[in-house]
């Protein structure tokens, strides 16, 4: 072994730095470390050779060698970090426009979505959701609602009747509206009442772009002291705004349903055109879109439930969920809802 000197330390360090600069991967770095700092590494050799030196020189060279060792260890780490960064910088680029791995995607039917939206709005206004039977007794669908047999108003609701199994059985039908639940609810509850009744209804009528024989309605009923048509209007205007936009206005006009008095039809101003476009598919230029029938609960109905109609008043309203959904989504054929074509449903 040649004698060790300060010059040797410097030469070993310089040589090691030069080789380090040429190390391009982790394996080369490891080889370098073994070759320089390992048990038989060049710098380790310098340290081993210290014992042969005189005391004074040994101290000086030893200190220099330790400094060199620390410096080279730091250089190794720096080189390693530089290589890591360089590798990251040149990592294969992702084509971010490729499709993602498909995740299973489910959806609620648009009628369910809109029905929930309606019920959520009314829930915020204090209307609890309750449901009633789809197969009804004649007396609840009609009689108790002041539509006796042979009343001409029955023409407003073409009805599916069920076969009777015995002549003594009461007449049963598929409810034509959710209004029977007004009666069922007030029979079992006391004012104040605020309910929203969603559910399927059935009409014995031919199907076309705007008529289905099965549809969903949401019925509203509020009974309390001092309820007025202004409350009806305010409630439904609030509904229209939350459903169709904050600037919406509502229009009431005269109508007739035997179970309310006065009875009105409620429209909302057109949100698809400025209100005067004759080509508008939504309002046809009238500026108004009919969305529901409504009115003040007929006092005879409140009295029949044992409420004092001179003390309590109420309002009721009924709307078709499909109609609201058609307006909301610009759907022109109601038959799209229950044909369940996956290509239609996948859009919601």
């Amino acid at each position: 072994m040649t004698s060790t000197s300060l010059g040797t330390v410097a030469a070993v360090e310089a040589e090691a730095r030069k080789r380090l600069a040429g190390a391009a991967d982790e394996a080369a770095l490891e080889a370098w470390r073994t070759g320089v700092l390992g048990r038989s590494g060049t710098l380790t050799g310098v340290l081993r050779g210290l014992g042969a030196l005189p005391e004074e020189e040994r101290r000086a060279v030893g200190a220099a060698a330790n400094i060199a060792k620390q410096a080279l260890e730091a250089a190794l780490e720096a080189r390693r970090e530089a290589l890591r960064r360089a590798a990251l910088a040149s990592v294969e680029a992702l084509d971010v426009t490729l499709p993602g791995r498909p995740a299973r995607r489910g959806r609620l039917h648009p009628v369910t979505q809109v029905r929930r939206e309606i019920l959520d709005i009314f829930a915020r206004l204090g209307f609890a959701t309750v449901e009633g039977p789809e197969v009804e007794l004649d007396e609840y669908n009609f009689g108790h609602l002041r539509i006796p047999e042979h009343h001409p108003a029955r023409d407003m609701w073409d009805t599916f009747w069920l076969e009777r199994e015995s002549p003594s059985d009461p007449a049963m039908l598929l409810r034509t509206h959710t209004s029977p639940m007004q009666i069922r609810y007030i029979e079992a509850h006391e004012p104040p009442i605020r309910i929203a009744v969603p559910g399927r209804c059935y009409r014995y009528e031919a199907t076309d772009a705007t008529h289905e024989w099965m549809m969903q309605q949401v019925e509203l009923l509020a009974v309390d002291e001092g309820l007025s048509m202004a409350n009806l209007k305010g409630t439904l205007q609030e509904f229209a705004r939350q459903m169709f936009g904050p600037q919406r206005r509502v229009l009431m006009r005269n109508s007739y349903f035997p179970f309310v008095e006065p009875g009105v039809e409620l429209s909302v101003d057109c949100f698809a055109c400025p209100g005067n476009d004759p080509a508008c598919a939504v309002c046809r230029g009238s500026g108004w879109i009919e969305i529901m029938g409504a009115g003040m609960v007929h006092p005879e109905i409140l009295d029949a439930a044992g409420f004092d109609s001179t003390r309590y008043t109420g309002f009721a309203a009924g709307m078709g969920v499909e109609r609201i959904a058609m307006l909301k989504y610009g759907i022109t054929d109601i038959r799209a809802f229950y044909s369940n074509d996956p290509r239609f449903l996948a859009q919601f």
């Binding site: 605020r194 007025s228 202004a230 409350n231 209007k233 305010g234 609030e238 009431m252 006009r253």
Partner: peptide
């Protein structure tokens, strides 16, 4: 009916 003021319950 436009005379009716919309009112909250």
């Amino acid at each position: 009916y436009d005379r009716l003021p919309p009112a909250a319950i």
